[in-house]
Amino acid sequence: MRTERSMRNIMRVVVILAVLLLAASPASFAKATTVSDYTALKTAVTSAKAGDVITIGSSIACSGQIVLSASGVTLQAKSGVTPVLDFSAIGDKHTGTAGIGIYVTGSNNTIQGLIIQKAGDNGIKIEGAGNTIENCILRYNGDTGLQISKSTAANNTIKYCDSYRNCDTATKGENADGFACKLSAGKGNQFIGCRAFQNSDDGWDSYGMNNDVTYIDCITWHNGDKSITGYAGNGNGFKLGSKGSTGKRTMTRCIAFDTEYSGTKGFDQNNGVGSVILTDCLSFDNVEGYQLDKVKSAVMKNCREFGCQKNELPNGGSITIVTDKSKQAAIRKAVKAVCSKIEANCEADIITGQVNLDLPN
């Protein structure tokens, strides 16, 4: 027979266990799931909770979109595999959100090591906060490869991603950029080490964007070439705003070149009136290197240009024109060698990731 003391001890143990269960963090119940088909992927994402890790073990033909509404989830490639998520089955949808490949409405999620292609609209669209997209390729989508928009989309980080050959047939190439942070997106979004090329519209677009955006070690080239995408929009490099838009654009070691197709400008304010801080940036082989004359304030430090016909600089802004032909050739060779390698890797389903580009002074 149990004594009163033993009963008290049992109750004490029960209470302690209950407290420990209540105090346990959600991460302690996290799941690790590996998937290799669309049904399993959609089920895993739909039921995901904070701390869950979903690993994709093979390429998947997606019969519909993936909506990541949870927060604190990791969606990643299996080690040694570069999965291609093909959203061709979505069809050519440009209204609403149904045409998006991966639609991220949750926050603090991570997506890494994937190739996202052939969505009817954006390859990835982000409307949540604090998300990280890393080492991904966005290509052949019916609108911008990766877009950040809506006021809730703040403090997102896009790292070492490539976005190319995105084209919107419905508007004849006018909207499909490599990357976009636009349409009243929130504060603190940043692009680090990303590359945008051969898109029907611009490399980057910040249309209707009044909050700050940061770009570090980003490169864009050869957008707006109708012979590649079938349609051509503006084809500029970094489009930093739109008529009357404000906000700060901070750019460090960014490069824009080869915008001589439908576009003309390497760095383009697009009638925005915000502020710019450009450090160690480079524009070459463009019709117009820097078109920033309407910004309200500017800091330009060690920015260079060559092979361009003109520049429109802001008050307080200055650049160095590289006139030495041998130095021009050395810079051009170094940049194009890296970019050619990136293009080849993308077409071979190889994710390049971070690159280090040391240019001649």
Rank of each mutant, 00 (worst) to 15 (best):
R5Q: 15
M7E: 12
R8Q: 15
M11K: 11
I16R: 06
A18N: 09
A23K: 04
A24Y: 01
S36E: 13
D37E: 12
Y38M: 07
K42D: 13
V45L: 05
A48C: 11
A61C: 08
G72T: 07
A77S: 13
S79L: 13
P83R: 01
S88R: 01
G96W: 00
G99N: 06
G99H: 02
V104H: 05
T105I: 06
N109T: 02
Q117H: 10
I124F: 08
I126A: 05
E127I: 07
T132Y: 10
I133M: 03
D143Y: 10
G145K: 00
N156D: 10
K159L: 15
S163G: 12
R165I: 06
N175D: 12
A176K: 02
G178E: 04
G178N: 05
A180Y: 05
K182F: 11
G188V: 04
G203D: 05
G224C: 07
K226S: 13
A232M: 03
G233W: 00
G241Y: 04
I255C: 01
Y261G: 11
S275L: 07
L278V: 00
T279W: 04
D280H: 07
L282N: 02
S283K: 01
A298G: 10
T323E: 10
K336I: 10
K336F: 12
A337Y: 09
A337S: 12
A337C: 08
V338P: 03
G353K: 00
